[in-house]
Design a protein around this nucleic acid. Structure first.
Lengths: 233, 233
DNA sequence: AAGTGGTCTAGACCACCTC
DNA sequence: AGGTGGTCTAGACCACTTG
């Protein structure tokens, strides 16, 4: 009796991936149309589509309407970073979380922030500097700019109690997020808030978000010495 | 005349997301079944499914068979890191790429590497230390361990010519990848390969990959001072 | 203009998990 | 054991983009 089990999209994805590794289809080659694959595998076109979407998301192939499906010339390793709300990150380590608002004012954007957002002209935004603490020790210092035109409600949030980080994550979805990670030697002003030494290697995360074309927030988060960003996928 | 346009899954996703932001459904709440939503929106269940899958992938909801769909209590920001082959990263900046093999030998895994892989016992692996250069200047130094049982073919690759980075990405798919990012002060041995100064803030990426349960490779990549990891999504 | 991937439908069955 | 999400099918139409 023949195996009448239906083809699963993961099987089909793995078969196609194997053909790519086999060099049946090399970098830059055009793959057969979904319909063609469906006929070969004896499954529905939508099942091939599901498999292809997975390969596209993981960076193995590139798809274009009318253009077809190509094997990517430059394979990439894709990793998903989960960036939790800082309070939860601290609490999940079993530490006590505290938060301190350091400064808050409306200022015109600096050239660096304008560059982050891609704005041609300066714009007044709410600048918030705040410190997150774990077990009463500095954990992350954040210097954040929030666009008042896009997020007017932020003006009525009591930022001495609730962190802008948490309020924004819970209340403002974003459609685009730029991220920049690097190491930087600690400065004198870092040492004041983070209790670090001048020259310490500090881990910095810069994040800028938009909803549609409208800027939401741009922030630079500087972590205490020894901080690690971990992901598993 | 009524609008007969079909509902798109993005519209439905946005509607559901809006209800969550509206607190129609709060953190931890159970959402209606997909079928129920389909009836309300007047669309097929699979369209609701498509919308829900997107919300689940972006960390807004959590789904379980029989358990239903819940609004996540702890919203997370998810960002996808694209980690290209180092050669391409250098070339895309318009620089000239070079590669130098520094050391290569079979050694028993150190406790740190065993911990990365979750191995209970030491195991012989190929250790490769290599330097990637951009315009003749040190770019990234990598210290890599490759499991000879999982990747026996690596023994026949000429690692003086081709980087293990490139060979593995092109030839070995992985099913799991752990990533750890942090900043570290430069040591004396860093300064030898990276032409950095002792105490410089260096950006470090540690990556460990498996295929199924089998270890593939674990590496620590130390970047030159000033390196930035950038993503856009 | 036409070919390709993207989406939507309606229905069926399956697999997992909680109840 | 039963309810829920996950998958698969077959078919249709749509939208993008390239030849």
């Amino acid at each position: 009796m023949t195996d009448k089990r239906r083809h699963s999209w993961t099987e089909i994805r793995d078969s196609i991936r194997q053909m790519i590794l086999d060099s049946t289809y090399g970098p830059g080659d055009k793959l057969p149309r979904d319909e063609e694959f469906a006929a070969r595998f004896g499954c529905a076109r939508s099942t091939v589509h599901r498999a292809m979407r997975d390969l596209a998301e993981s960076g193995v192939v590139e798809r274009r309407r009318k253009g077809g499906t190509m094997v990517r010339r430059d394979p990439v390793t894709r990793a998903t970073l989960n960036i939790p709300i800082t309070r939860l990150e601290v609490e999940q380590k079993g530490s006590v979380y505290q938060y301190q608002l350091i400064r808050q004012s409306v200022q015109a954007t600096t050239p660096a922030i304008m560059a982050n957002f891609g704005l041609p002209e300066p714009r007044p935004m709410l600048r918030v500097e705040a410190l997150h603490l774990a077990d009463s020790r500095p954990y992350i210092f954040e210097d954040r700019w929030i666009c008042l035109e896009t997020v007017p409600e932020i003006a009525s949030v009591d930022l001495t109690r609730d962190s802008a980080n948490e309020w924004l994550v819970r209340n403002r979805p974003y459609s685009r997020c730029d991220l920049r990670l690097y190491a930087r030697p600690g400065t004198e002003s870092d040492s004041e808030v983070l209790q670090s030494k001048i020259g310490d290697a500090l881990f910095v995360m810069e994040r800028t978000t938009w909803i549609g074309e409208d800027p939401i927030t741009s922030l630079r988060a500087v972590a205490h010495p020894g901080y690690q960003l971990v992901t598993q996928g």
